[in-house]
């Protein structure tokens, strides 16, 4: 009898785990947003070891030779809560998770430079996925912001 009860527990646990991963039972109310600031340049061939895992495919698309991690910041934000990340060049990125559904989070991004709004966007970011936002010139290269979410 005890053996059968244990088997039943295992079955229930596995079933719940499967449904849990299907995101049908537990609704997420907060997520962790990370913003890595990368300086891409062509003056040398240095690639930050911390970036190698993420940069590999980018290297085949861009003609930069070096990728340096300038800063890394993480925010734990609830849905509807805004967080601000300071970026080089007097830039700020305002991040607001708006909804988490299934494997994606709806996130509003507001990029500002000094007091001016550069762009405003709404993205659906995959759980543990990355959005690379790049372009601004900085020092002898260009900035790339790797924005990722996890929940």
């Amino acid at each position: 009898m005890r053996y059968r009860f244990r088997c039943l527990l295992v079955v229930v646990f596995l079933t719940l785990s499967w449904f849990g991963t299907a995101d049908s039972l537990l609704a997420q109310e907060s997520c962790r947003i990370s913003v890595d600031t990368i300086l891409a340049a062509r003056n040398d061939n240095v690639v930050d070891p911390k970036l190698k895992r993420h940069i590999g495919e980018l290297q085949s698309m861009f003609n930069y030779t070096s990728y340096r991690l300038l800063s890394s910041e993480s925010l734990n934000l609830s849905v509807g809560q805004s967080g601000m990340v300071s970026l080089p060049g007097d830039r700020r990125l305002k991040i607001t998770p708006q909804r988490i559904h299934g494997s994606r989070a709806d996130i509003a991004l507001l990029m500002m430079k000094q007091t001016r709004t550069v762009f405003e966007t709404q993205v659906q970011l995959l759980n543990r996925g990355n959005l690379f936002v790049g372009g601004p010139a900085y020092q002898n290269g260009n900035l790339i912001f790797k924005i990722s979410s996890a929940y």
Binding site: M61, R116, F119, G134
Partner: peptide, 25 residues
């Protein structure tokens, strides 16, 4: 989903294998 701002150019593309989205402005 949406993108507005004051920029001279913007490109949205993705990497071919893992489909990492890139927004270049």
């Amino acid at each position: 989903n949406s993108f507005t701002g004051s920029m001279s150019s913007v490109m949205i593309f993705e990497t071919p294998e893992t489909r990492q989205t890139i927004l270049w402005y």
